[in-house]
């Protein structure tokens, strides 16, 4: 039983780490602001979420740790998605357009890379 729990939790932890890494790579490599914020919010939701689920399997039964982790998961899901939404909306409002294809307007790419 211990071994099964360990294996499950490690699967979650490793996938979570993978998503964190891809999120970081995307944050650095994606062309414009909106795709970059997508990458960043993946780190927040999928990466941190999976790691928290993995930790729940490690916490050893229904102690005090498990509900705390569940709460952290809920809060981080709520807060990070809302924050991403707010940032994206603010960017859209201040006149930043998503870059649909990199070929058509090079000047737009410049303005978004400043942010």
């Amino acid at each position: 039983m211990e071994l099964v729990l360990d294996i499950i939790s490690w699967i979650f932890l490793v996938t979570g780490c993978f998503f964190c890494l891809t999120g970081a790579v995307g944050l650095l490599r994606f062309p414009d602001f909106f795709s970059r914020i997508h990458a960043a919010s993946i780190t927040d939701t999928l990466g941190a979420g999976l790691i928290l689920i993995g930790l729940m399997f490690q916490s050893g039964g229904w102690g005090l740790v498990m509900p705390k982790l569940v709460l952290i998961l809920l809060f981080s899901l709520l807060a990070s998605t809302t924050a991403s939404h707010a940032i994206a909306k603010a960017a859209l409002k201040s006149g930043l357009k998503p870059e649909v294809s990199s070929a058509d307007e090079p000047s737009e790419g410049e303005s978004s890379s400043k942010l």
């Binding site: 809060f75 709520l78 807060a79 809302t82 939404h85 707010a86 909306k89």
Partner: peptide
């Protein structure tokens, strides 16, 4: 005008 922010904040603030 930020409806989503307001609703989420209303849920979060008491907590």
């Amino acid at each position: 005008q930020q409806i989503i922010l307001r609703i989420v904040a209303k849920m979060m603030i008491p907590l």
